[in-house]
Simulated scan of single mutants.
Amino acid sequence: MEYLKRTRSRLWNKDYFQFLIERVWKIKTPVRVLDCGCGYGAVGLQMLPLLPEGSSYTGIDLSEQLITEAENIYKKLGYPAKWIHGDFITYPFIEKYDLVICQCVLRHVDQPFTFLKKMKEAAQDGGLVIAMEPNRETECDSLYIDRLDYGALCSRNGLRKVWKTEFEHQGRDYAVAVRLPHMMKKIGLSHIESRMNDHVQFAFGDARGGEKLSEDLLEINEWNEPLSEADLKARTDYLINHGMNREEAVGFCKNQQKTGENVRMLRENLAYTQLPSMVITFGRKAETVKFGY
């Protein structure tokens, strides 16, 4: 939980989120926000202090643990919030919302198009549907670690085959971030725009809380410790079952092992730069035309 809170809190520059709310989305009056796949309410913690007074926030998530944590956090802060423990796709929403938002969700669900359509259904006429997603391809190029080979860090080594297999057989879309404007057009949203998050994360050894930044980098890439033979075999088999040939799978795992060894050697003085590659795409649900007789 602490790891999740630290990493989510580093995704944004506060002034950029304020810019989106005030200058891009032009939110001047209180709004009702629905956060789809809310986790512990990270998006709400960013938004609520910046939204007009009287705004409300509702979060829905499959994880009971995350919903419980969200309730505890928001109670302590005194933020107005409502929590739903359930499946967003099947939940029967009655209320409609001014802003329907998700962050780092569509990349991980099996049917992102279905999820996006449900987001539109939950929006009121004229409401905004907002999806914030990292692009998997640019994620591969976004990490630089000083004293390591940048080319090795951003090597794909057959990953595109894995992504293609996930997409074709599971529906999990590695490129959902760059497809989102087109998906929003297909479901009938208007005034569609995309932006890029301007946050860049960097650490120089112990500077800027470097120890936690470095440890989190190791954890998210699973470089904390050497792989056991059993773990190595399981990963290799997984990659082969998801589209790589054996040579590609073995090469990918060996590259990860070597990178992990090098990073652990630099652990105490690890210096790196990373871009979240977060694409913010939004569109507006059209007003329903009513005819009177």
Rank of each mutant, 00 (worst) to 15 (best):
L4T: 08
L4V: 07
R10D: 05
N13F: 13
K14Y: 08
F17S: 01
R23D: 04
V24L: 11
V24K: 05
V31A: 02
V31I: 15
R32W: 12
L34A: 09
D35F: 07
C36G: 01
C38L: 05
G44F: 06
L45P: 00
L45Y: 02
Y57F: 09
Y57N: 01
L62P: 03
A70I: 10
N72P: 02
I73D: 00
K75R: 14
K75E: 05
G78C: 06
Y79N: 00
A81W: 12
W83Y: 10
D87Q: 15
P92C: 01
P92H: 15
D98I: 06
C102T: 03
C104E: 06
V105K: 00
V109M: 06
Q111H: 14
F113N: 13
K118A: 07
K118V: 08
K120V: 03
E121G: 01
A123C: 03
I130R: 01
A131M: 06
A131D: 05
M132R: 12
P134S: 14
P134W: 14
R136H: 12
E137D: 12
T138P: 05
E139V: 12
E139G: 10
E139A: 13
C140M: 11
D141Y: 12
S142P: 02
L143P: 04
D149S: 08
G151I: 07
S155P: 05
S155Q: 13
N157W: 07
N157C: 08
G158V: 02
W163Q: 06
K164M: 04
K164H: 07
E166S: 06
F167Y: 09
E168A: 11
H169Y: 08
Q170C: 03
Q170M: 09
D173H: 08
D173W: 02
Y174A: 15
Y174Q: 12
V176M: 05
K185M: 02
K186V: 00
I187R: 14
I187W: 11
S190G: 10
S194Y: 11
R195Y: 07
N197M: 09
F204V: 13
G205R: 06
D206H: 13
R208K: 13
G209Q: 07
G210W: 08
E211T: 15
L217N: 12
L217H: 13
I220L: 09
T236Y: 08
T236P: 04
D237E: 14
D237Q: 10
M244W: 12
N245T: 05
N245Q: 10
E247F: 03
A249Y: 09
A249D: 01
G251K: 03
Q256I: 04
G260D: 07
G260C: 03
N262T: 09
L266Y: 03
N269V: 07
L270V: 10
Y272V: 04
L275D: 06
P276A: 01
P276M: 08
V279Y: 11
G283F: 02
R284V: 13
R284T: 15
R284E: 09
E287Q: 15
T288I: 13
V289F: 15
G292W: 14
G292F: 11
G292P: 03
Y293F: 10
